[in-house]
Design a protein around this nucleic acid. Structure first.
Lengths: 239, 239
DNA sequence: TGAAAATGTGACGAATCGTCACTCTATGAC
DNA sequence: GTCATAGAGTGACGATTCGTCACATTTTCA
């Protein structure tokens, strides 16, 4: 009987509807303006129906996060296809991350919150499980580039260093920079270079430290940065 | 008239009392368990009195953050006195950061939250201003080490790179690693080296990339790490 | 067609926020 | 010592929001 599959499809569509409504509210008025009643009102369903889909408000936040992670994964996958050496591919991923957070700062706040015990303690285990899965996908994208670099001889990891160590290092550096960057005007008194080259420069030094070839002295990564920027910019939804 | 100064002193003591109560609640039951009524009850004051000190709940969170930043500044200052080369001093600071977040994970969640627009929009301007000031102090501690390295010839910054760029890079790397580290068990499937060497290794690579001498090939920073760890551990309040 | 299953509802209780009109208390002028 | 006054302290209150659940409505299919 395909009544079941139709039901399933309708259910998923409605879930998407609720998440879209929530995302809109957040983009316009910020996270603290998000209420279950507003989501119900905007979608013309009753609150009870929203709770058929999400166990609590935090579960919705994680649902949104899941979508964001998905988009990020898409962008990262796209970055992998960038024609260039292994370091250029990594830069392309970093640029993707940067573009995303700059385009949707409110949702980046969400990504930050979702790394916090406070939120994760309340969200449903099922959704956390799914977040883990997408996390893994994203990580695999970065891992793939590192593996590629090792195989092609561009990179030799120091002793006692795992692939995942570098993976986390790159992630942490980008994450940290973008979080602090989001609060840039709040951290007064910092005399910084232009936003766009900041991430590039720090990543360059880190990768130079790993002796990931070609080194920044051997290749013009600023050009790569600019090209990948234009390349990925087109992928970002305008809405 | 010193009635005024006494009043002032009492006011500050009570503020400290409220913050201590809030911190206790958070340490025991997490951020979401913090309510204004509980703070009032635990301190045996009425809620209205709490609101004489803090404009809203977020203002309290920022107040706690301010204390944490203060402690961190103290620790960083102490790190500056570490006898060793400039890179060792930076490591000492990193170790201090790590020790703090591991000792008080709940409060680290707070530090993260306080970098988020959501919270900052609600806190009182006065407190945000004070946070900025302490931020600056902390940054100055890092700046000082970088300046020292430059003056002593250990470090020459690349062209188009500011002192503050490196400052932010170091901060971002540590911040990012510690946030992700806090969610370590949540990011399943990551095969990482031991926690303690992770931060050290990533920082080492970054600083090697900057050609900050002595390079990690020329000096045993693992030893530095272990020594500074023991050195600073004693500073952390046991309570 | 109609009984059973699935879906949808919104009034409700509970928790919490932040306010404000008030009571109480310490101060210092006389 | 008395007393008017500033300001410190209160907690009942309205408002908001969460999450629930007993009931209403719709859909399914025998």
């Amino acid at each position: 009987m395909n009544t079941q599959t139709r039901r399933q499809r309708e259910y998923e569509q409605r879930e998407k509807l609720f998440l879209d409504a929530a995302r809109n509210i957040i983009r316009i008025d910020g996270i603290s303006a998000l209420t279950m009643d507003k989501i119900a009102e905007h979608t013309e369903y009753a609150k009870g129906t929203v709770y058929k889909h999400f166990t609590c408000k935090e579960d919705i936040l994680c649902g949104l996060c899941l979508d964001s992670l998905g988009l990020m994964y898409e962008m990262f996958s796209h970055a992998l296809t960038w024609q260039g050496n292994s370091r250029e591919k990594i830069i392309c991923i970093g640029v993707g991350y940067q573009l995303y957070t700059q385009r949707f700062p409110e949702e980046f706040d969400l990504l930050i919150a979702a790394r916090t015990n406070n939120i994760r303690q309340k969200a449903s285990p099922e959704r956390l499980e799914r977040m883990d899965q997408v996390d893994t996908l994203v990580l695999n994208a970065i891992r793939a580039v590192i593996q590629l670099a090792i195989q092609s001889g561009d990179l030799t990891l120091p002793e006692h260093t795992q692939v995942d160590d570098l993976c986390l290092g790159l992630w942490a550096m980008s994450f940290g920079l973008l979080v602090l960057e989001g609060a840039r005007d709040l951290i007064s008194g910092l005399e910084l270079s232009a936003t766009n080259t900041l991430l590039l420069n720090q990543m360059s030094c880190l990768l130079d430290g790993y002796h990931w070839h070609p080194l920044s002295t051997e290749h013009d990564y600023l050009l790569t940065y600019q090209n990948t920027f234009r390349h990925l910019e087109a992928l970002i939804p305008k809405d």
